[in-house]
């Protein structure tokens, strides 16, 4: 059994939480429409027509994804109504875990952008220094040590062990 929420805020968060499921299906449906449109534009070859064309399976799958997501959206609206979407968005933005995840995504996203554009050792050193500092992995001296050791392991030792060219 889940613990009973104590404060009004927790009650609101728990109530609004499932409404986030309304947003996901919108994105999945958009993706499915993109796949269906692309699939319909693909050339048809052979005597059997569209059923053996390259676009047949994506169109079929896109349709299934749309139906399943519409069902999920219907269930959310039936259970919570339109207004709860705003309440969910507000509680999601104020969530501590969400903020932490968002910052981590930005840091890792920045690292991914650096890969292939700046020397790999440098990209790793910047990434590790920033992420260790944000995660408070230790004092300043420890962070420098962790950064150097991690960068050497990832950018030099591992690629050398597996004879792998680095980006």
């Amino acid at each position: 059994m889940a613990q009973q929420p104590t404060s009004q805020k927790e009650r609101n968060d728990d109530y609004y939480w499932p409404v986030g499921d309304f947003v996901g299906p919108i994105l999945f449906i958009a993706m499915a429409i993109f796949f269906i449109v692309g699939g319909l534009r693909m050339p048809t070859r052979g005597a059997s027509g569209f059923v053996t064309a390259a676009g047949f399976t994506p169109v079929l799958l896109g349709s299934i994804v749309i139906v399943l997501n519409l069902l999920l959206m219907y269930l959310i609206l039936k259970g919570y109504g339109y207004r709860s979407v705003i309440g969910w968005a507000r509680s999601w933005m104020q969530d501590e875990l969400t903020r932490r995840w968002f910052v981590l995504t930005l840091i890792i996203g920045g690292y991914v952008l650096m890969v292939g554009r700046v020397p790999f050792v440098l990209a790793n050193a910047i990434f590790f220094a920033v992420v260790f500092s944000y995660m408070r992995a230790g004092n300043r001296g420890q962070i420098v040590l962790y950064t150097v050791v991690s960068s050497v392991i990832v950018a030099i030792i591992v690629p050398w062990l597996f004879a792998l060219p680095v980006p």
Binding site: I108, Y111, V112, V115, N124, F127, F128, V131, F132, M135, S150, I153, V154, A155, V158, P159, L164, V166
Partner: peptide, 9 residues
Amino acid sequence: PIAVALGVV
């Protein structure tokens, strides 16, 4: 974070 960098490699 080291796992992330290994994942990138």
